[in-house]
Design a protein around this nucleic acid. Structure first.
Lengths: 229, 229
DNA sequence: AATATAAATGACCGCTTGGTCAACTAAAGG
DNA sequence: CCTTTAGTTGACCAAGCGGTCATTTATATT
């Protein structure tokens, strides 16, 4: 029983120039997530997108281009949104920082993008272009976002005077690490409890930052955030 | 001008059954560090070890076996040492924890092993045996070491009552992350300052853990530690 | 010096895979 | 219905690599 491939079973294939790129990107992202970049075969992508291998090259010049386009199309817009949110926010920076941490978690770790960091790390040696592109357009931008909030908190007298960039790295590291972990060794480990991990991380960070010793509220997440799609 | 290969230039090669395995492991570790596991060619390992490709298979059954042996031979003994140190330590657990963090940093991030975490992560999908082996014999053991110290600190009334395993993960995550970073995207980023990163991390963790609010001493590292080899 | 042993070699095999291109065919236009 | 256009195909190619094995040769033994 064939699934959905042949709703119009008479024709062997159809011309669908407009729909192809999106379908290819969807298929690719899913396969990259499941198997990594190198291990994903162009033929698999083609099959999963419902076309032949040759057709891939009508829409993308090569494998790297597909990945680059995934990043460009699915990550950059989100960063834009968060960036403007940070710029427009009025209120205390501790709440904003908490919000950012949660937004990162929801927008990356809990989304279809959760495998990207691991893939980039894993393939950084084999595909330096990809690595550099990602570093410049995602990593650096994200960290600047965090350090901006921290710097403002310091200037407002809300936070202690640490180096904002260093703190930003300490904030992001456990988030990234958890995401990478999810897609690498987690399956061989019996540890669990993602929620308390995130909660405790936030508490330690704010505890270290806030001048008036930080009292963690009984952590109801108090900022709603819209998830991507 | 040949370098050191032909000190005895008359013979095309010598029988050196005993010395080969070590030389192979040295060459392999260095190449794995430089290029990753998949990207390292058996022929490169052979050349770097001063033998032919065929000879590799006289000493190791395949590529994975070489890597496994590197881990077994160079990491496990170190873990044994630290483990017994933890068991024998008398004193307050905060100092011990600080010591552990520094020992991890020196023994992993600053040693010839610094590339191992990144390699394991990167290859976890393609070599699940390797990943499982490493998780069971290194990751889990390390984390248990940290959580043991934290649990003792809690029982001694020295630390606040958090879940020891979760805290252990939060302690290790930034360390691992920094190590992976070193061997992946760091070269594309202009950030620096490893020292303050480690220092601040320790401060935040202890600040979060210790009951009597933690006063960071003007961080002279106050425990000497012997480096591996 | 002759023989035996086993360490070491490197040409070779099988297989995989990213990417190409001449042929094919769905769809549009007349 | 015929012609033209261009979206689609899949056999094919070249390159790379892990692993094998018949052969070579350093060394020990007699």
């Amino acid at each position: 029983m064939p699934c959905s491939a042949d709703l119009k079973s008479s024709r062997r294939w159809q011309r669908r120039k407009e729909a192809r790129p999106e379908e290819i990107l969807d298929a690719a992202l899913q396969l990259f997530t499941e198997k990594g970049f190198s291990a994903t075969r162009m033929m698999d992508v083609a099959a999963s997108a419902g076309i032949s291998k040759g057709s891939l090259y009508l829409y993308f010049s090569n494998k790297e281009a597909i990945f680059k386009e995934v990043v460009q199309q699915r990550i950059t817009p989100q960063l834009d949104k968060v960036e403007s949110l940070v710029n427009e926010f009025e209120g205390n920076q501790a709440d904003l920082l908490k919000h950012l941490i949660n937004a990162w978690w929801m927008g990356v770790a809990c989304s279809s993008l959760s495998a990207i960091p691991k893939i980039i790390i894993a393939e950084s040696g084999n595909f330096p272009d990809l690595a550099e592109y990602f570093t410049r357009n995602v990593v650096t931008r994200s960290r600047h976002l965090f350090s901006k909030v921290i710097r403002r908190g310091i200037q407002a007298g809300e936070f202690r005077e640490y180096d904002a960039h260093t703190v930003a790295r300490l904030v992001v590291a456990p988030l990234v690490q958890a995401t990478i972990w999810m897609h690498s060794l987690k399956q061989y480990d019996d540890e669990e409890g993602t929620h308390s991990y995130l909660q405790l991380h936030t508490e330690f960070i704010l505890n270290g930052l806030i001048k008036d010793s930080y009292k963690p509220k009984m952590n109801k997440i108090n900022i709603k955030l819209e998830l991507p799609e």
